[in-house]
Design a protein around this nucleic acid. Structure first.
Lengths: 210, 210
DNA sequence: ATTAGGTAGTGATATAATTAACATATTATT
DNA sequence: AATAATATGTTAATTATATCACTACCTAAT
């Protein structure tokens, strides 16, 4: 089995393609070309074909791709053909937004536990999931077989939460706190910094206005 | 003036460096080396120096960088030395999270108007800003001299909101709806898709578990 | 059948980004 | 004053990524 390295940019684009294919499929379109996909998501047709080529042959020359078939293949590539158990730590506004985000449910991410230390929040039911005290992490997370932890707590406590999630067996962490977390190399870590996006925007604006 | 192209990855890292320097400065540390920054944010020292080199010379050979000075320079580069007026359209959970996100305020992003079409929300004050009906966009946005629009409405209405924001004079759009928006080339567009991050995570997990 | 038009897959090429190496400059020490 | 240690800025080398150009192949029309 050849495991050539896949650019992360490719994975991100596959994710975008898949979102677009959902839309196309809903419209009842059966076949689509790399050029159509490219136009729909704003990349070049060659890029679309190259991205897919890392994983196999999914189309028919001279014809295009079957929408459902391609979509299914991309979901499988992304690991979305089965469900993932997600634990959410910190249920402030951002945590609340994530817990109710339809896009997660749609793609097989199931929030199975929610933790917070605010006494006013503990016991609340959010979308059917009870908010538990943070000290319950080590108890609940293994029981739910949770593979992914999402951290939306303040910066000061993010590292300790990460430690506890790792200890409880999560394999991946999605961190929204603007801090560099330390986790063992076998744990997959991904940071989302909402301010970064605004800053790239203002940098580009600055250039245009200068 | 030579305007060589700056990689976007460089801008993203500068944003991360700046966040780290805030922390370092708060600790009262006066001087820092590229190696220190590199270790703090998880990149190579050469990368740090290269990123900075695009914009000038900010350090002293044999010594390092003055923390406050470097931080100020990075903020200036990113266009954060003055305030930006942001309009938020759609005040669901995600919009609420953004409107109260301290990280924005800290960096000079001021939300000056909020719009939604839900009658139950119109009139509410969020952090001192009144929620107005979407039809007020064309009236209010120009009055506030708003340069940036943030879209957190459902996918179906995202494009029409983008159109109205552009018509009202915004120069940049931060879009959280999972759809490819069409805007004139002079308008800076940036898409944030929360699900993408989880999907990159699961792809990487899949590889590790296979 | 044959041909024209269209589209996927792919190896070669070009471009971009990262890393490495080094020359230059500063500080501290002897 | 000379030397050792340290750290930047910059050029060169390497690696990674994206684009291009071409081949293979399918469909439909003549």
């Amino acid at each position: 089995m050849k495991t050539l390295k896949i650019p992360e940019a490719t994975i991100i684009r596959l994710s975008v393609y898949s979102r677009y294919l959902t839309e196309i499929d809903r419209k009842g379109i059966v076949t689509i070309s790399s050029g159509d996909v490219a136009e729909g998501v704003g990349v070049s047709p060659a890029q679309v074909r190259k991205d897919l080529a890392y994983f196999g042959e999914f189309g028919i020359r001279g014809v295009g791709y079957n929408v459902k078939d391609l979509h299914g293949n991309i979901l499988r590539i992304l690991g979305l053909s089965s469900e993932w158990s997600v634990s959410l730590v910190g249920i402030g506004n951002l945590g609340l937004a994530l817990s109710t985000y339809q896009g997660f449910k749609d793609r097989g991410f199931v929030i199975t536990s929610i933790f917070d230390n605010d006494p006013q929040k503990i016991g609340l039911k959010i979308d059917g999931i009870e908010v538990r005290p943070i000290d319950d992490i080590e108890d609940i997370v293994p029981k739910c077989n949770t593979q992914i932890g999402a951290i939306t707590v303040p910066t000061s406590s993010a590292q300790s939460i990460a430690d506890r999630l790792v200890k409880s067996g999560v394999k991946a962490i999605l961190n929204f706190a603007p801090i560099v977390l330390n986790v063992p190399p076998e744990v997959e870590l991904r940071n989302v910094d909402l301010a970064v996006n605004l800053e790239v925007l203002t940098f580009n604006l600055r250039g245009k206005m200068a």
